[in-house]
Simulated assay, not measured.
Amino acid sequence: MWHSVQFSRYGGPEVLDMVEMTTPVPGSGEVVVEVMAAGLNPGESSIREGHVDKEWPARFPAGQGSDFAGFIARIGAGVTGWKTGDAVLGHTVRGAQANFVTVPAGNVIAKPERLAWEIAGSLYVAAATAWQAVQGANPGPGRTVLVHAAHGGVGVIAGQLAKRRGSRVIGTASLDSFDYLRQIGVIPVEYGPGFEERLRRIAPEGIDAELNRLGDNVLMNVDSTDTTVLQKIAGLVADRQIAIPVAAIYEFARVRDAYRELEAGHAHGKIVLCMMPVRYAHQKVHGIDLRASEATKDAPNRPPVPPNHEALPPVIGHRHRHPVASPAADRSHAE
């Protein structure tokens, strides 16, 4: 039986419901993707809670979710370059958190084989937002860039992009994120009382560019038709030129719990829903806390472990999916 996440009134995670769905039929120029993983973003909570209803009013019942990765299940008329079973990732507006999502064919790209499903399914909004922020900051050799919330889904990408441009990068974070930031070449500084003094000690000559508010309502600034940035970031992550931390993996049915963790504001990295989750070492799956921070805290006596992104092989789901042949197939799943 297939489901999609919907809400029929503004509110917290408790308003999210799992609603039964059938496999959609794509229109001209569209593809249907069977979703394997779908990421969470702070802007989705703002929309659901009604904080941005003037800019992005919800039409109830409203779907939920932006980023996704999965397999093409059906292809609409006029679509070329794709076939059923192709592994893809992409972005939609209010609908990624579902067993199936329908999008224009131009809104997806091929998933690199070495890119883990969890990361592929949570990449677009964070990647596009980080890319835009870094382009505006214009980092380069000899420049010092300050990235706020550098341990978050957007900040961790922005910091690494700025590093790749040759800048010295300082990132605000809590103490338990310091070691991870050092691993990716970002100089950590603790936020809170005394922040300005600590920052002056680290950067006595000042800051050349500051990337702030990277997590606030980022969905309003993302172009869902631009996949060029997504291709660049996905390739860098697949080639291990950029590391993306995954804070927690939740099975699809636990979407409310996933958003509760996101909205608590303590997650160090992306939170992801997975339709066919697999347990990993150093990962929080099904609410069992084996999280990556345990492997990356400052602990001189702890034996070295691989970085979190290296412990996430792309093994969720089957390597090849059988195409959804007909509505009759849908009924057989539901029976």
Results as ranks from 00 to 15, higher is better:
Ala37Ser: 13
Gly136Cys: 03
Lys111Cys: 10
Ile184Gln: 06
Pro61Val: 05
Arg143Phe: 06
Gly12Lys: 02
Gly235Phe: 01
Gly140Lys: 08
Ala158Lys: 02
Glu190Leu: 11
Ala149Pro: 01
Ser174Met: 08
Asp176Phe: 12
Ala116Lys: 03
Asp289Ala: 14
Glu14Asn: 12
Leu40Asn: 05
Gly11Val: 06
Leu40Phe: 09
Glu190Trp: 07
Val285Gln: 06
Asn212Thr: 14
Phe60Met: 10
Phe195Val: 00
Pro139Ser: 10
Ser45Met: 08
Arg213Ile: 05
Asp67Gln: 10
Lys284Gly: 08
Arg279Thr: 15
Glu261Pro: 00
Tyr259Ser: 05
Gln160His: 06
Pro141Ser: 12
Val103Ala: 04
Ala110Phe: 01
Ser8Ile: 00
Pro303Val: 11
Arg321Leu: 07
Thr227Gly: 12
Asp223Ser: 12
Glu30Lys: 12
Val15Gly: 10
Arg74Phe: 04
Val147His: 04
Arg165Asn: 07
Gly81Met: 09
Pro303Gly: 11
Thr92Arg: 09
Trp56Phe: 14
Ile187Pro: 02
Trp131Thr: 09
Ala137Pro: 06
Met18Ser: 13
Ile202Tyr: 06
Asp86Leu: 07
Pro327Tyr: 08
Phe60Lys: 07
Ala328Trp: 07
Ala128Thr: 13
Leu312Phe: 09
Asn217Met: 08
Val222Lys: 09
Val25Leu: 13
Phe195Tyr: 15
Glu294Lys: 15
Ser332Lys: 12
Val31Gly: 05
Ser66Leu: 14
His282Glu: 01
Leu161His: 05
Pro13Val: 05
Gln97Gly: 00
Lys54Trp: 02
His91Met: 13
Leu115Ala: 05
Glu196Gly: 03
Asn217Val: 13
Met18Glu: 09
Val79Cys: 09
